[in-house]
Amino acid sequence: MNTVGQPYTQSNAGYGSQRTQYNTRVESSADPEVNKRLFRIYEILIQPIHDIENAVNNIESHKERIKQLENHNFVPKFLDLAIKVVLFLVALFVLHPLTDTIVYWISDMFDGFLGIITELLGLLLSLFVFVIIAFIAGEIVHNMINKSLGPQKQPEIKKENLEIAALQQQIQSTINNIKHAIVFVPPAYRTSDALSFFVRAYHNSRVDNLKEAVNAYEMHMEAEHTRSMLKEQIKVLQDIQFQNAIMLDELDSLRSDIWLSNYICW
């Protein structure tokens, strides 16, 4: 469900609930009967729009699930590490002659000047080469395993896609049912939160028409934003006070240590 302060999401707009034209200008009507019917329409629209919002959120959840299934790793980390270790040992055994070649090449480069250091350097370099080979081979094996086992997730992905299709059909059906009524709602306020606020304000005699309801809602939104900022500032101040308390305790402890040290010296 959309949060207060966010009239409608791009996803919600994409399903058509924001695309109808707002061509019925009734926001400043002084006719009590017109306003009564208007807010009755809003009251009826709350649940369908709430259903659309939930369906949109569910679609996003299913899409995220599909992404997780497509990127599923069939090789646990410990097994991946074990594969790389085994490949390293295999490379070390099979390519062992390469070690002597590298050591000889480095020794020849320095013309034996560094003696054992050059041999050690050559050994380390050869081990580094084996590690790189094992890592690359391990990644290849890793990807081959994931690719071969990937089709196992296809039924789940298909199920998620069917769920998405059903939700999209539900959204379209709901939009078709309310398309003649939603034209009375300004596009920026076609959310269950905004309409619920309008209806509550009207029933509580805070507003008499749509224009007053919109102004009251905007003031409410601004107050919510201010309240949220104040909460964040209070939290920051509380953190500062906590840190100051810790610092004062440390200073008191330091003073006690200094006093004790001076007392002993006397």
Rank of each mutant, 00 (worst) to 15 (best):
Met144Pro: 07
Asn146His: 08
Ile83Arg: 05
Asn73His: 00
Gln241Ser: 05
Thr24Leu: 15
Gln170Phe: 13
Leu149Gly: 05
Lys231Ala: 07
Asp193Arg: 08
Asn262Thr: 05
Val4Asp: 02
Glu60Cys: 00
Ile234Met: 07
Ile106His: 05
Val85Leu: 14
Met1Pro: 14
Glu53Asn: 09
Asn58Leu: 14
Pro76Glu: 02
Asn71Ile: 02
Asn204Ser: 04
Gln6Asp: 04
Phe113Cys: 00
Ile240Tyr: 08
Tyr202Phe: 12
Ser107Cys: 10
Lys67Gly: 01
Phe74Leu: 11
Ser253Lys: 02
Gly115Asp: 09
Val85Ile: 15
Asp239Gly: 06
Met247Asn: 06
Val85Asp: 15
Tyr104Ser: 11
Thr9Gln: 10
Met1Glu: 13
Pro76Ile: 05
Arg255Lys: 03
Glu119Ala: 08
Met109Tyr: 05
Thr101Glu: 00
Ser126Leu: 08
Leu45Glu: 11
Tyr15Gly: 01
Glu53Ala: 00
Gln241Asp: 08
Arg40Pro: 10
His96Tyr: 14
Leu162Val: 09
Asp108Glu: 00
Thr191Ile: 10
Asn71Cys: 04
Leu114Arg: 12
Ala55Pro: 11
Ile136Tyr: 13
Ile44His: 08
Gly14Gln: 10
Gly5Phe: 08
Asn244Gly: 06
Ile106Gly: 09
Gln18Asn: 14
Ile106Asp: 01
Met144Ala: 15
Val90Arg: 07
Ile102Gly: 00
Trp259Gln: 05
Glu43Leu: 03
Tyr22Arg: 09
Ala82Gly: 03
Asn143Met: 14
Asp31Phe: 06
Asn23Gln: 15
Lys84Gln: 15
Ile133Pro: 14
Gly115Ala: 09
Val183Asn: 14
Thr99Glu: 04
Arg206Gly: 08
Ser61Asn: 09
Val236Ile: 05
Asn161Glu: 08
Ala223Asn: 04
Leu237Tyr: 09
Leu237Cys: 10
Glu212Gln: 14
Ile178Gln: 04
Ala30Lys: 00
Glu33Ile: 12
Asn244Val: 11
Ala165Pro: 07
Leu95Asn: 13
Phe242Asp: 05
Gly138Asn: 09
Gln172Trp: 02
Ile133Glu: 11
Glu222Thr: 09
Ala188Trp: 04
Pro7Lys: 10
Glu27Gln: 15
Lys153Glu: 09
Ser11Lys: 08
Pro7Val: 07
Met221Phe: 00
Asn177Ala: 01
Ile182Lys: 08
His96Pro: 01
Gly115Met: 03
Ile44Cys: 02
Ile52Trp: 14
His62Lys: 15
Tyr15Trp: 02
Ala188Val: 03
Trp266Lys: 03
Gln68Tyr: 00
Ile59Arg: 11
Glu64Gln: 01
Val185Cys: 13
Ile66Met: 09
Asp80Lys: 06
Leu195Cys: 00
Phe197Arg: 01
Pro155Ala: 01
Leu251Glu: 10
Ala137Thr: 04
Lys147Phe: 10
Asp100Ala: 12
